[in-house]
Simulated assay, not measured.
Amino acid sequence: MAEKPLILVTNDDGINAPGIRTLIEVMNQLGDVVVVAPDSPQSGMGHAITLYSTLFADPVKIDNGPQTEYSCSGTPADCVKIAIREILNRTPDLCVSGINHGSNASINVIYSGTMSAAIEAGIEGIPAIGFSLLDYGHDANFEPSKPYVKTIAEHVLKHGLPEGIVLNVNIPNLNKEAIKGIKVSRQARANWVEEFDKRQTPQGKDYYWLTGKFVNLDGGEDTDEWALENHYVSIVPTQFDLTAHHFINDIKNWNLND
């Protein structure tokens, strides 16, 4: 009998978040699942790793599913590292991260712990996908996401991904009938216009809350933001090589060694 695919599941909202519980449920239909996820919310951690404190990864049993689970004290990237080096007995065939509570489209990919976990797996040569639903609520309805999560994961298991590429998948917050399908997209040019809400403690010490609004500067109809606004699931192939290859020759023409 052929060995089932080994699937590593992680996230940044914490091991008890509804999104990851949904992702585990779907992945159990596709292979043998091992979960290594943060023991508390780690949203916005990006690719942070733990260097100056201890890490714990404790076995847990959260539901009656067949998966094996570990609750980790570290960041999403830590979870993938410790899974690969200490927990798994072979290299996983797939790593899936999410389902995130909230968008990781456009510039959000830079800040996302969800996507950083997928990218960490990609660095290790493991096909990886980050899934996000455009609903920040703890009570978000993940049911319409399930067929898209399963379909995309099945195709990655079948076809693999090129070295250095992971998938950033965002799903609109709509019922199943309203989602039109899947669009392969590029990352939209957009950013957060940020402000700090400055307040004072009763003792007179200043403190700040980060606020802001998301501004889409991209009018293209081939972007993730366009796809989501038009009721499509977006897939953006994302690379972790940040080199601006097109600008290398321009810098060489500066004659820096003259």
Rank of each mutant, 00 (worst) to 15 (best):
L157G: 04
N141C: 13
H155V: 11
G113Q: 08
I119L: 14
G160I: 06
A128I: 05
I129W: 07
G125W: 11
L157P: 01
I119F: 07
H138F: 13
Y111N: 06
A128L: 05
A118F: 03
L167G: 06
A153P: 03
S106L: 01
I165E: 04
S106C: 14
H159Q: 15
G122Q: 10
G164H: 11
N141V: 11
G113A: 07
E120W: 08
I126K: 01
V109N: 00
Y136L: 14
E154T: 15
A140K: 06
S116Q: 05
F142E: 02
E154R: 14
P127E: 06
S112C: 00
V166N: 01
G130V: 00
G113F: 11
H159F: 09
E120F: 04
G164I: 07
N141M: 08
E124D: 13
L134T: 05
N168Y: 01
L157T: 09
Y136R: 11
E124N: 15
G125M: 13
S145W: 00
V166W: 01
P127I: 10
I110T: 02
Y136Q: 06
L167V: 11
G160A: 09
E163T: 15
H155N: 15
V156W: 13
V149Y: 04
V156L: 12
D139G: 05
G160Q: 13
P162T: 06
P144N: 09
N141E: 12
G137L: 13
L133R: 04
A118R: 00
I107C: 14
I152F: 07
E143C: 00
S106D: 10
L134A: 02
K146W: 08
G113P: 08
V109F: 04
Y148K: 13
H138T: 12
V109I: 15
K158C: 04
E120A: 12
A117R: 00
A128D: 09
I126D: 05
V169D: 03
N168M: 02
Y111W: 08
I129H: 08
H138N: 13
